[in-house]
Design a protein around this nucleic acid. Structure first.
Lengths: 163, 163
DNA sequence: GAAATATAATAAGGAGGCTAACTAAATTTG
DNA sequence: CAAATTTAGTTAGCCTCCTTATTATATTTC
């Protein structure tokens, strides 16, 4: 993903925007800040596994797949560029979490296969991350979590339309 | 901000997690994805001004200040490192949006002063960004926006506690 | 008041994204 | 069936952020 700086400010940024009745801007700031904080926390939890969030997501996708996948498919699922996936797979391969094989049916293609070690690591880090996420989100009731998802879905649609 | 890859997957990622009743994970994914999408959109809107989101935030802070500010203060407000602020100011200075002056009272300090051009640009980009934000968030009613902010605040607190 | 400590800004180097250009292989088209 | 186009993966070069080390100046402590 684009390496855009996160849009965040310290938590009392409301000072700055309070006067302008910028409710939308306040939403935007909070959204960016919260997401950024969460991603940082997840990155912390992944560190013991020597995984970046991106590598972890890629490994997770491979762990869920019955069969090896080409980098292309991983890029599509994560909505990142193929070039970035190349790097993620390089890093996973260095740790022996995955292996590249040339495709026999289409020699342009590479197939990425998760190793037994990779599968184990995926199971482990997912448990850790999921446990933490559950704990973080415990401050919201189930209905609130559902509503948060609903609001975010609508926002996503709104943003996606916008060009 | 840390250059962590955004944690996002294509919008039908629910497939993957549906089976595991991972509501918290679904929240997390949506949060990261929505924020990332929004930041990308904002970055698009800032491009005509030759500003990155980070530079724009820094310029905004300077525009709001009665007096020139040291890089240190900007770093604190944006919750980014001082080293990063050095780079942002470099880029703003190249475009003549700000000027560095040595502080007369503490010769370790630099004071960053916004130029008239910078002030104008800040007013312009803010209007553009704010208009877009308003449009994006129109899919949520006022009470929904307020609730989103409330939910996010609680999440932020929860995440901040977590180490 | 000299030495040790703390603070401000910067520089150097690293990580993780991106686009654009390149190579190889498959597919389409005339 | 040869040429042009498309597709897959990689490489190279850029951007924005980070952490750590460096330099200069203030402040604290003995």
């Amino acid at each position: 993903m684009p390496n855009h700086p996160a849009i965040q400010v310290r938590s009392d940024f409301e000072d700055i925007y309070a006067a302008s009745s910028a409710h939308a801007t306040e939403c935007a700031m909070n959204l960016a800040h919260t997401a950024d904080l969460m991603v940082k926390r997840i990155a912390d939890r992944l560190q013991p596994f020597e995984l970046s969030p991106g590598s972890a997501l890629a490994l997770g996708i491979l762990a869920d797949s019955e069969t090896p996948l080409p980098p292309n498919v991983i890029a599509d699922r994560l909505i990142i560029s193929r070039a970035t996936v190349t790097g993620l797979i390089d890093s996973l391969e260095r740790r022996n979490y995955v292996q590249r094989h040339p495709s026999l049916t289409d020699r342009r293609m590479v197939l990425v296969e998760i190793t037994d070690l990779g599968r184990q690591v995926a199971a482990d880090f997912r448990q850790v991350v999921h446990q933490n996420e559950k704990r973080w989100f415990e401050v919201l009731s189930e209905p609130e979590q559902a509503q948060l998802i609903e609001l975010l879905h609508r926002l996503q649609d709104s943003l996606q339309e916008s060009e």
